[in-house]
Design a protein around this nucleic acid. Structure first.
Lengths: 164, 164
DNA sequence: AGCACCATTCAGCACAAACTGAACGTTCTG
DNA sequence: CAGAACGTTCAGTTTGTGCTGAATGGTGCT
């Protein structure tokens, strides 16, 4: 393997480890980015020097996170993986969801905390406002990224779950 | 302690654990949000049922991350901690920095990968574009949040590190 | 039916993260 | 100067996370 590829894969591993994923998952994602064709579990195991069990686990982890897709090839029983073509949008979704959970924490705190804890409620309120703001901004940002990535793909009513 | 406070603190612990911090650090942050006055290490240890060593470590961790401030009270040798009044902006900074590191990974990959790895370079390029976009957007978002939070606090040349 | 080839699951193991109590250095106080 | 009150550091322990090899179950082929 090319040394630059090796470096890239390791850096991806380190970075995604910082995001809470297993290092190997990040490495798999790095490998998948470099491959021109979908990779089988065995190929992944071989390239990354890990067991097939670990490849399987981490690939499904990536799939669950929307960063990789499991694909099948005609006349082949094996599972192949490739990076999700919409990975960037999935990452935005995930970030937005995470903001949402913190928003919920603030909402519950706001309603359940005793009224006389003024300074506490003030701080909760500020974090609530902040995450509401963030949630909204991330939605708009997502939309801007979508139209930039695929020109002519502006939002339609259908995209928002409404009738066309 | 009020049960809602207890719940809030635990939820903060769980959430920030998902962000890569020790669970206790998240709990400390939750506690600090609820306190009307800065809290000493001993008070934190007592409220959270952890050792002083752990309180000390986690408080400095929060301080390093820009989420808490170490403050001193007149005529008192103890260290007190409170949530950083600019915590939200610090969080935005941190997010932007993280995007920056991934951007650097893509930049290095773009220049060091062999030219004949077309599909790899295409994907690297897309992630590079994405993170450039994100980096820019987060800067603008940060500015919008600043003016919303403190009306009349629009950007000046000085804010951007230039002369007034 | 028997076999080969998959992916997945599981128990056991190794490594890393985080907490604790104790030791330490420092800084005030009497 | 002795002692108390701090915060920090450190060794040891516990807890959790991730990996591996082996076992399991499913699927297609002969």
């Amino acid at each position: 393997m090319h040394p630059a590829a090796q470096t890239f894969i390791e850096k991806m591993g380190l970075h995604f480890e910082g995001e809470g994923l297993p290092r190997t998952a990040g490495r798999v994602l790095g490998l998948l980015m470099l491959r021109s064709e979908p990779a089988s579990l065995e190929e992944i195991s071989e390239a990354l020097q890990v067991s097939k069990a670990s490849s399987s686990t981490n690939c499904r982890l990536l799939e669950r996170g929307g960063m990789a897709d499991r694909v099948s090839l005609p006349g082949d029983r094996r599972d192949y993986y490739q990076v999700d073509p919409n990975m960037t949008e999935r990452m935005l979704d995930a970030a937005r969801r995470k903001v949402g959970t913190l928003l919920e924490i603030m909402e519950e705190a706001r309603t359940s905390l005793p009224e006389d804890m003024h300074s506490a409620l003030r701080r909760v309120e500020e974090l609530h406002d902040f995450h509401t703001f963030l949630h909204h901004e991330l939605g708009a940002l997502h939309e801007r990224w979508r139209v930039r990535r695929i020109p002519g793909n502006e939002a339609t009513r259908a995209d928002l779950g409404e009738e066309a």
